[in-house]
């Protein structure tokens, strides 16, 4: 008898910090039993019979965080389930593979990471126009069934009835899928709120399509950016794990503000390790948002002791800003492994 396995982070997990249930499925656990992604979501929806997001993850592919850091996993389909159902029009969305092309590399400097750090890996970011149908090209990359919206290609889960929400930063999903180590769960706070707006230019990105470039702000909301998501719970990797990916990107010569987004986390790591930051390419609107959380150009240009990779990773909790009231939880303590007998 075939089995469909999935990981559940139930509402109330992590000492009540998780407000909405989230389901994660390894692509291999679906393809190995001959199901389509949609079929798997419908089976899980029927079995779980409650409100939850569903993300299908390819652990052999790569994706990109909103600020331009490549991570070695990818979200390949998202869904929302409720009442045992997947809404047939907008409850499910598959993400198409992004083909390798010189045009892509020429237009998107942060994608040098693909060639130099993840050669040959399949890339998935956000949905393309066909994936989004029947949504319009400008609509959010979102699925909705019943009470649950799964937005920005799996990075925000919303209960649109009780209006609770949780952010799942891409490195957090990766850690959950590896089913090892720890994740950091807390309140996003002003630094993360500003940081998630500091995006890079991408065709069919996880959140935007060819909208803004490194050094610019997708939030574009002045001093209000720090409040945009600041009081929402968030899950991410512990800071040393995410910092390791940032350092890899900086090591190959990518410059924050020019090639990478100017998020507080990336700027803090670059400053601590003495990497170049393209201050002049950071837009005035982005500086307003950074200044509002105390990250001024003057502060960034102030000389500091240059740390090695090992030193930074050791001090990552102090150096990388973001997450108020963050607490580390063992992945095994918040994830419930579930099996459906088919």
């Amino acid at each position: 008898m075939a089995e469909l396995k999935y990981k559940l982070i139930p509402k109330g997990a992590a000492e009540g910090r998780v407000p909405v249930s989230m389901i994660f499925v390894d692509k291999k656990d679906i393809t190995s039993i001959g199901l389509s992604y949609r079929q798997a979501c419908e089976i899980i929806a029927k079995s779980y019979n409650g409100p939850a997001s569903i993300d299908i993850i390819d652990m052999d592919a790569v994706t990109v965080s909103s600020d331009g850091i490549m991570l070695d996993f990818a979200v390949v389909a998202i869904a929302s389930c409720d009442y045992g159902l997947i809404n047939k029009d907008v409850g499910f969305m598959e993400i198409s593979e992004m083909p390798y092309s010189q045009k892509l590399l020429d237009e998107e400097p942060h994608m040098k990471q693909w060639d130099l750090l993840h050669p040959g890996k399949r890339l998935y970011r956000g949905p393309n126009r066909n994936d989004k149908f029947p949504r319009n090209a400008l609509d959010e990359t979102e699925t909705i069934t019943g009470r649950i919206a799964n937005n920005n290609t799996g990075s925000e889960v919303l209960d649109v009835v009780n209006m609770e929400e949780i952010l799942i930063m891409a490195p957090g999903i990766f850690q959950i899928m590896k089913n090892e180590g720890e994740v950091l769960i807390g309140i996003a706070g002003p630094e993360v709120s500003v940081g998630i707006g500091m995006i890079v230019f991408e065709t069919d990105g996880r959140i935007f399509n060819r909208a803004y470039g490194a050094g610019q702000t997708g939030h574009n909301s002045g001093i209000y950016a720090k409040t945009v998501k600041s009081d929402y719970p968030a899950i991410t990797a512990v800071k040393k794990d995410f910092a390791s990916y940032v350092i890899d990107a900086l090591d190959i010569g990518l410059v924050p503000g020019k090639d990478l987004g100017c998020s507080p986390a990336i700027l803090a790591i670059a400053k601590a390790m003495g990497y170049t930051i393209d201050y002049d390419n950071i837009s005035e609107r982005a500086w307003i948002e950074l200044d509002s959380i105390g990250i001024t150009r003057q502060y960034l240009e102030t000389p500091n002791k240059i740390l090695t990779r090992e030193e930074l990773l050791k001090k990552a909790d102090d150096i990388v800003p973001g997450m108020s009231d963050g607490k580390k939880f063992a992945v095994a303590s918040i994830v419930k492994e579930c099996v459906i007998e088919l």
């Binding site: 159902l85 409850g91 959010e140 019943g146």
Partner: peptide, 15 residues
């Protein structure tokens, strides 16, 4: 300005 509004899916009203 543009605003995106996500509201409950129709199932919420007839499930």
């Amino acid at each position: 300005e543009t605003e995106y509004i996500s509201e409950p899916g129709p199932e919420y009203y007839y499930h």
